[in-house]
């Protein structure tokens, strides 16, 4: 069972504070981390390897410092890791990212399963997994909460949808995206940490993966950000005055007048 796990390095907080006086971002204390959903993807890959044999390869696209997330992946059970890094890759949207990953995955050779997290916490698009599967022409199952059985080149899984869960069967190789409910990621082992420290992580650039420069990074992106803004809302509501008792009194009267309660 050869498993590829896609990981992304993201800013370690979704609660970036904005200084309301200057309207700037408060930068202190923001560390880069592995996208939390991807840690479940990695854990599932490592569990499959433990059960069925084979190896787990972690793969990430990002700036040189994204190597950190790959060392972390090795410390928690990945056997190998590859970093896709090239200044030509920057500014990629999901289409260009999926293309870059697909090129690299075709170079890594045979695989049975690709696992991604359900989405990243910075982009929140959940698009790269399905786009990647389509480019590799393999089946995809999203929001997987349990792998029930792998037998004879077929995999049976449980998938979360809005109002319940589906049991799905898919032939391998396939790509799945996983939700938090699938497992509890392990902490790094001492042996893993030693291994991570000395691991040699190859860095592949655009030439190495045979990428068309018009299909990677911002050049290869179909979508561009044209404007970034902090939403400015005019405060239109009423701030209730008085002691807490008076505020609550006024509030409840207002809600009753509006027939809301």
């Amino acid at each position: 069972m050869n498993v590829l796990v896609c990981l992304k390095q993201v800013p370690g907080t979704t609660q970036v504070q904005i200084d309301s006086e200057t309207n700037t971002l408060v930068r202190e204390g923001i560390k880069n981390i592995v996208n939390p959903f991807d840690t479940y993807a990695l854990e599932e890959g490592v569990r499959l390897k433990e059960q069925y044999g084979g190896k787990v390869t972690a793969i990430s696209m990002g700036p040189p410092q994204a190597e950190e997330v790959l060392r972390e992946a090795i410390s928690t059970g990945a056997d190998e890791a590859v970093l896709l890094s090239d200044s030509a890759f920057s500014g990629a949207d999901t289409l260009a990212t999926a293309y870059t990953l697909a090129q690299a995955i075709n170079k890594t050779g045979e695989y049975d399963l690709i696992i991604c997290g359900r989405q990243t916490i910075d982009g929140d698009t959940a698009q790269v997994g399905p786009e990647l599967a389509e480019m590799l022409d393999i089946p995809v199952v999203t929001y997987v909460s349990r792998i029930e059985e792998i037998d004879n080149g077929q995999m049976r899984l449980q998938r979360m949808v809005e109002d319940g869960y589906e049991t799905i069967e898919t032939p391998l190789p396939a790509l799945i995206t996983v939700v938090k409910e699938i497992n509890t990621p392990r902490l790094p082992s001492l042996r893993g940490l030693t291994k991570a420290k000395s691991a040699v992580i190859p860095v592949w650039d655009a030439a190495e993966i045979g990428a068309d420069l018009n299909m990677v990074g911002r050049n290869g992106s179909a979508t561009w950000v044209t404007r970034i803004f902090f939403p400015q809302r005019a405060r239109q509501g009423e701030i209730l005055e008085g002691s807490p008792e008076e505020q609550v009194e006024t509030l409840i009267n207002r809600l009753r007048d509006g027939q809301l309660i």
Partner: peptide, 23 residues
């Protein structure tokens, strides 16, 4: 952007090699 839409619309965009903006 339902479970269905988020799963198969990106694949359509990949086939058409066009842009898709989520949510």
């Amino acid at each position: 952007a339902t479970a269905l839409g988020r799963s198969f619309i990106p694949r359509v965009a990949a086939i058409l090699k066009t842009g898709l903006t989520a949510d």
